[in-house]
């Protein structure tokens, strides 16, 4: 299972990458593997204000719908336009082409996990 060292993580299996002033958010390799074939992704609207811990997106496999939570409070600045037509990118490339949305954060993020802590969490799962 792939858990890149340079990312931060949540206990609900989102990853967070600092990209300039914004952060990019997706779901982890562990999460996409647990979900199986992803067939539908519902994303927030650019401009939408989100609270850390609030449900902001939905990733659906053939079998189930899974809520995605905002890892930080802030404003949505972009969503991945490719996922409407090719949601399977989340399976194929969870950390790159399968990213979900970008946020302009209002601070916070101190409680995000590093790769080692996240890996430990998935081992207990």
């Amino acid at each position: 299972m792939n858990v890149p060292e340079n990312l931060k993580y949540t206990g609900s299996h989102e990853w967070v990458r600092q990209d300039g002033a914004d952060v990019t958010v997706g779901i982890t390799d562990f999460a996409q593997d647990q979900l199986g074939d992803i067939v539908f992704v519902e994303l927030p609207q650019p401009g939408q204000q989100v609270q850390a811990g609030a449900q902001v997106a939905v990733v659906e496999s053939v079998k189930t719908a899974s809520d995605i939570y905002a890892p930080l409070s802030g404003t949505v600045t972009a969503v991945n336009p490719a996922l409407a037509e090719t949601p399977e990118l989340v399976n194929r490339s969870p950390y790159q082409d399968g990213w979900l949305f970008r946020l302009s954060p209002r601070g916070g993020g101190e409680d995000l996990l590093d790769a080692e802590a996240y890996l430990a969490l998935t081992r207990d799962a």
């Binding site: 199986g36 074939d37 053939v62 079998k63």
Partner: peptide, 20 residues
């Protein structure tokens, strides 16, 4: 296989993936 509970049984949900 990814094994899951189904009707009191532990059954394969999928191997390579449901779509394939």
């Amino acid at each position: 296989a990814r094994m899951v509970p189904f009707g009191g049984w532990e059954m394969p949900l999928h191997y390579q993936g449901i779509l394939a």
